[in-house]
Design a protein around this nucleic acid. Structure first.
Length: 666
DNA sequence: ATTAATCCAGTTTTT
DNA sequence: CTGGATTAAT
């Protein structure tokens, strides 16, 4: 595709600090690709080019376009996080990421150890979950003050808790270290720490620069590069909740002396009526730079159409009906919503009409119990310090809950002199479960307990495991003993394994995973009276078998078992399932385009999500930018839809103010 | 004191 | 449909 003069100017911009302001649909991706092409044809080593994007999919697509022309390329490309991980892996190949959900749980237990009332506080502290989210935002915003001070500055009422909050995050950080956990933010923070060991680049290209937060900006500054090429559009900044800071793009020329700003203003994507509508609405936001978008498409275009429905379900039905009868190929249609909660309703309505749809994340594969269990098992074998994974696995055994799980873990670590694997396979011969004082004074009694406990597990565990001091736990159940032995045997069998496929195979076929799978299948086959239907059980097992196959298939694409695990944590939400109409949140739709777009649930409260807009980080301007992003995904046809009533919550709706701003209602 | 079962409320966007 | 909280059972 030929470039227009503006695009060419960006491609040809000399080395230095370049900022390209690229409005929606102005050929941003093509420009980045052409820029890299130019660098390559000038003879720059691909290894000296770094491309940072917002999703790994976007990076893969751009690299794919380049490779079609140049063949296999060694360009470093991916999200900030994926790239950081790749570098850190070379420094420490065993580091393992932990899901934000799990970290939140850990944070909650740390928080739970504080008793605010008893400590004499009057006011209401933030809840654990809120505080955890705030902590992430704090890390992303990188202020110079402590977390507690920062919270106190944003809210007067919270000032009294600032020391407690500092204490909580300190303990949380210590525990993370103890268990060997890394959060997404830790990837960037660690990469900044190791900046000296990261190779220099000739040019670093940054896509979606408007969504950069302070942590990412610091990461960029820590890189050694001759030239910076940032592409963004402040009207599409929609990640304030994640610390995205428009000031970063707005202050580019102040921060980079000799920084150049280039503009891409010719829109090739959408028809005039669609762009006019987008423009009318976004003009209600304060303009940072006046921006004029030139419509390049010649045809008159179809005016966007407003759809009003009496209630939510009539809306989902109606949209499904329209999609069904539309001549547009299904995979070039997108249904876009503000909140993920809209997805289920529309998906059901589409299903009923036999229309397939493609949905990201959602009721994910990774939320299934058997998949979670697999990844806990994998996480534990990769990082034996992962106490939480150990407990999750042991909880499948009857009679073992969080408490005993934790005691077993600590016992094993004690018997292994700090090493869980040693504690399982080659333990010191002593009872780790008696209090030390007692141990000294009542040595004879200990012996008695040992003999007695071990006797219970004859026939349950093998001879070699029968001598394990872990079996001395007074409340250990038979199943618990079996699980411990199976776990020990799994560690033994995995030790010499290098190949990813083999490693995954052994995990999936291990005794412990088989037990877990059978328990899950039985649970799912349980009838109302408590009995198990063998047919249902067979079906459940079959479904699980299929999912095991999927895990094998996923794993086969990765060179190392650590890479596989970390890629699953980093990219699980990017994976989409299904074929057909695209179901997307506005955030998920960023950077994509479709012939026909339906924006649904355009009601006050929902979109704009007024609850979020009132919260810190949110604003009605941000909601308006979200609307702008959604509208500018459309090439030819745009429908805007709302419903007047929610029959489940018995709630009346008013149409979104954006519909008024768009001139569609008065 | 722990674990298992049962019932009730609630549901933000992403790496 | 899930997570949390409450309750029953061990």
């Amino acid at each position: 595709m030929a470039l227009n003069p503006e695009q060419q100017a960006a491609v040809d911009a000399p080395f230095g600090s370049n900022l390209v302001i690229a409005s929606a649909g102005t050929g941003k991706t093509s420009t980045i690709v052409a820029r890299i092409e130019r660098l390559l044809t000038e003879g720059i080593d691909p290894r000296e080019i770094l491309l940072l994007t917002f999703t790994n999919k976007a990076a893969a697509e751009m690299v794919g376009r380049l490779e079609r022309r140049f063949g296999k390329l060694a360009i470093e490309a991916g999200t900030f996080h994926a790239v950081s991980y790749r570098w850190l892996k070379e420094i420490d190949p065993t580091l393992t990421l932990k899901e934000p959900k799990e970290l939140k749980l850990l944070f909650k237990t740390v928080y739970g150890r504080r008793d605010f009332k008893r400590a004499g506080f009057e006011g209401d502290p933030y809840q654990a979950g809120t505080l955890f989210d705030l902590y992430n935002l704090y890390q992303n915003s990188q202020p110079a003050i402590s977390f507690g001070e920062w919270v106190g500055e944003r809210s007067r009422e919270q000032r009294e808790f600032r020391e407690v909050y500092d204490d909580i995050v300190q303990e949380f950080e210590e525990l993370k270290g103890e268990y060997g956990y890394l959060s997404f933010n830790d990837l960037l923070l660690k990469a900044i720490d190791y900046r000296e060991s990261i190779r220099p680049f000739r040019e670093v290209l940054v896509d979606e620069y408007q969504d950069t937060n302070n942590l990412q900006a610091r990461f960029l500054e820590s890189l050694s590069t001759e030239s910076l090429f940032c592409v963004g559009d402040y009207d599409q900044s929609i990640y304030a909740f994640n610390g995205a800071n428009i000031a970063i793009i707005a202050s580019f020329t102040q921060r980079y002396r000799n920084g150049r700003v280039l503009n891409l203003s010719k829109n090739y994507r959408s028809t005039r009526p669609i762009l006019d509508l987008a423009d009318r609405v976004i003009s209600h936001n304060e303009r940072i730079f006046p921006k004029r978008l030139e419509v390049m498409r010649r045809e008159e275009g179809v005016p966007p159409k407003l759809l009003a429905f009496p209630d939510l379900y009539a809306q989902y039905e109606g949209i499904a009906r329209m999609v069904a009868s539309s001549p547009t190929p299904k995979d070039r249609i997108a249904i876009i919503f503000r909140n993920n909660s809209s997805a289920d309703g529309i998906e059901t309505a589409l299903r009923e009409r036999g229309i397939g749809c493609k949905r990201r994340g959602g009721i994910s594969f990774f939320d299934l119990a058997e998949i979670k269990a697999f990844f806990d098992l994998l996480a534990l074998t990769l990082n034996p310090k992962d106490m939480i994974a150990f407990i999750h696995i042991m909880e499948f055994a009857k009679g073992i809950g969080a408490h005993i799980g934790k005691e077993l873990y600590e016992g094993a670590v004690l018997c292994g002199e700090g090493d869980l694997v040693k504690g399982l396979l080659d333990p010191l011969e002593r009872n780790p479960f008696v209090k030390r004082e007692r141990n000294v004074q009542l040595a004879l009694f200990d012996d008695f307990v040992q003999m007695g406990s071990k006797g219970n597990f004859h026939g349950v565990v093998g001879d070699s495991f029968l001598s394990s001091p872990l079996l001395l736990h007074p409340k250990l159940s038979q199943e618990g003993a079996l699980f411990l032995e199976e776990l020990a045997s799994l560690f033994r069998r995995l030790r010499p394994i290098r190949r990813t496929e083999k490693y995954v195979q052994i995990l999936l076929e291990s005794g412990i995973y088989r037990h877990i799978v059978e328990k899950l299948a039985s649970k799912r086959a349980k009838l109302k009276d408590g009995s198990i239907d063998p047919r249902l059980r067979e079906e459940a097992l079959k479904r699980i078998e299929g999912r095991k196959g999927l895990i094998r298939e996923l794993a086969s694409h990765y060179g190392g078992i650590h890479s596989f695990y970390n890629a699953m944590v980093l990219g699980s939400s990017e994976m989409a399932q299904g074929e057909g109409v695209h179901l997307l949140t506005v955030h998920g739709s960023k950077g994509l385009e479709f012939d026909e777009v339906y924006i649904i649930d355009l009601m006050e409260g929902r979109f704009p999500n007024t609850k979020l807009a009132r919260r810190e980080g949110g604003s009605i301007e941000e909601e308006r930018r979200l609307f702008y992003v959604a509208v500018t995904r459309a090439r030819d046809i745009l429908y805007l839809s709302y419903a007047r009533y929610d029959p489940v919550r018995k709630e009346e709706f008013r149409p979104s103010r954006f519909l008024r701003e768009a001139g569609l209602i008065s």
